[in-house]
Each structure stands twice: as structure tokens, then as C-alpha cells.
């Protein structure tokens, strides 16, 4: 593999050719990593939609004659040798990101107080970092009634940011796709096609990939705020998946089972519905130890390793 040099916010990094700007920034880490609400490294074709990861390519390379400077989605733009990228050092990027955050919120119900995702929601993080203190909209927001996507998953379409991740899970992970997008524009709707329930061994991963509270776990709904639960790495023998999960406990009770997510909120591995929904007894699991959540959001503050 040939290496190429790219500079992001004045930090130079050498990465393999074919790496995206976003992933190059993740190699550097820290503040120069753009927020990514739709890209998901494990889902083919994801990214490019939410536009929160826009960065400025200040200078392209000799090989690519396209006119620069220009804002591009970092999750879908490959680095090129000699590329100069600005993220947090570009006022233009910061302005665009603020605007995108506002776009994502103008139709959002802002119902965090009653949303199960609160505390681990990427839209909350994004608004905290880039949102306005006040709203500039006075009109009604689009509304949909919550619906069931299968017997274990609840869809609150009002909260959906149309990142398409769940559609890609349905498409790429499950064998019979019955899940997709209906309609156009801001009246788009995530739907199981013609209300067929999603009944599949891996459908629960839709909950984990959803960056917001649009898809939530019906077996966990309203049981507890996530920051009152304590995450533990645990595993079990499973024939369908690796069986490596995170248990979210309150006292001795296992309230929720999810996959293991990295600091960008991406699952390390997809887990099966059996592990996720059907095993909530302490002796179902071998506990490995407390899970450290490396995020700056509310659950990221939940450090209790010393307990």
C-alpha cells in the first residue's frame, strides 16, 4: 500500500492511499475529528448525507484538477497526496456545521426529557457543540405517530435525521429486507415496507446504529435514564454472533444489552437479537469488567471504575 501525506488543521499525517479525510482525522484523533452523524464504517455506502462532517479542502493535489478550495463531506472524500484540509481552523466550516446542526433540529421535537436516547445521543452532542442557544423557527414541526418496527423496536420518526444507517443494516445484515424509506424530502419516512414487521436475527442492530432516539429498544424503554445505569463488558457462548456485548445494569438487574461501541459510537461487532433481547439474567453472562465509555456526552462522564 502506498502512503500519502495529508495535513488536517496544520497537523500532518501519513495514511494509506484510499483513506477518507474523516478516517485520516480519526488517526490524528482529538479535536480535529469532524462529527459524523451518518457515516458508519461497517456499513457499505454509508455517509455523505448528513453533511455534519463537511471540511474545507484548501488545496487539492496536482493529480485532481477539481477547483478548490471547497467544502466536501470528509466521510466520502479520499485523501490525496499533498492535500491540505481545514476543519476547526476554518471559520467557513464552523459556520456550515452550525447551519447543518440547525437544519437537523428545525423539525426535531426537542423531546430529550422523554427520550430514551438522551445521554447517549449524537444529536445532543452535536447541538451542544454547534447548536444555537435559541430557535429561529416558529412553524409547526412535522409529526408522525410512533410505530412499532417489529415487536422489539419502536420508531419515533419525529426524531429521525434520515441518516439511512438503519436502512443499510436492514439491507446489508438481514437476509430479507423489509425496511426502507418512503416518501421524499422532509416528509420522508423510515418504514418497514407496507408495515411488515422486521423479524430477523440481526434487526436489533438498527437500534445501536441509530444516532438519535428514533429507534429504541422496547425491552428497555422508560426503565431508566442511561446515566443511572452502569455498563459492563460481558460475553456468552452464542452460535449466531460473537456474544460480546455491553450489559447496562442498575443494581443487579440487567436493564439493557447492546453491542460494544467505540468512541465514535460505532459498534465493534454487530450482535444478534438473541443476545440483545432474550438474555437478561445475571447468570446468562460472564462479566469481564466495567466498560469505559469514551465520549464527551453524559454517559461519558459516568466513570465509576473505582466502584
Amino acid at each position: 500500500m502506498s502512503l500519502v501525506k495529508v495535513t488536517i488543521d496544520q497537523i500532518e499525517v501519513e495514511v494509506e492511499a484510499g483513506t477518507t479525510i474523516l478516517n485520516a482525522a480519526r488517526i490524528i484523533g482529538g479535536g480535529v475529528v469532524p462529527p459524523a452523524m451518518c457515516y458508519y464504517s461497517k456499513l457499505e455506502g454509508s455517509g455523505g448525507k448528513c453533511r455534519t462532517c463537511l471540511v474545507k479542502v484548501a488545496q487539492g493535489s496536482a493529480k485532481d484538477p477539481r477547483p478548490m478550495p471547497k467544502l466536501v463531506p470528509s466521510c466520502r472524500t479520499l485523501v490525496q497526496d499533498g492535500m491540505v484540509v481545514q476543519n476547526i481552523t476554518s471559520p467557513e466550516v464552523m459556520e456550515a456545521r452550525k447551519a447543518i446542526t440547525e437544519f437537523l433540529l428545525i423539525n426535531h421535537p426537542l423531546d430529550c426529557p422523554v427520550c430514551d436516547q438522551a445521554g447517549e445521543c449524537h444529536l445532543q452532542d452535536l447541538s451542544y457543540d454547534h447548536g444555537l442557544a435559541d430557535t429561529q423557527t416558529v412553524e409547526d414541526r412535522r409529526t408522525f405517530a410512533p410505530i412499532d418496527i417489529g415487536d422489539k423496536i419502536k420508531l419515533h420518526m419525529n426524531r429521525c435525521i434520515l441518516c439511512y444507517r438503519c436502512v443499510m443494516v436492514a439491507d446489508q445484515l438481514t437476509d430479507q429486507r423489509v425496511h426502507g424509506v418512503l416518501g421524499r424530502g422532509d416528509h420522508c419516512e423510515i418504514s418497514t415496507h407496507i408495515l411488515k414487521a422486521v423479524d430477523n436475527d440481526f434487526s436489533g442492530n438498527m437500534i445501536d446504529v441509530c444516532p438519535v432516539g428514533a429507534l429504541t429498544d422496547k425491552t428497555f424503554r422508560f426503565k431508566s435514564r442511561v446515566w443511572f445505569t452502569k455498563p459492563f463488558d460481558a460475553h456468552r457462548e452464542c452460535t449466531k454472533c460473537s456474544g460480546k456485548v455491553v450489559l447496562w445494569k442498575k443494581g443487579d438487574e440487567i436493564l439493557r444489552v447492546t453491542g460494544r461501541k467505540n468512541k465514535y459510537g460505532e459498534l465493534e461487532e454487530f450482535i444478534c437479537n438473541d443476545c440483545r433481547f432474550e438474555h437478561k439474567e445475571p447468570n446468562d453472562w460472564q462479566i469481564e469488567g466495567p466498560r469505559k465509555i469514551e465520549r464527551h456526552s453524559v454517559i461519558g462522564q459516568n466513570h465509576y471504575e473505582k466502584l
Binding site: G48, K49, C50, R51, T52, A99, I100, F103, L104, I106, N107, T137, E139, I161, L162, Y164, V181, G183, R184, G185, D186, H187, C188
Partner: peptide, 21 residues
């Protein structure tokens, strides 16, 4: 344009409706 936006990307999906309103 609001009616015809495909809704994939947030600036167009949300912005077209907002401008219309």
C-alpha cells in the same frame, strides 16, 4: 423544490421546506 427534494441530505431536505414556510 420542497416537494421534490429527495431528502437525503440535511441542508436541502430541511432548508427547502423552511424557505417555503
Amino acid at each position: 423544490y420542497h416537494h421534490e427534494s429527495c431528502g437525503q441530505c440535511s441542508p436541502c431536505r430541511e432548508g427547502t421546506g423552511w424557505m417555503e414556510r
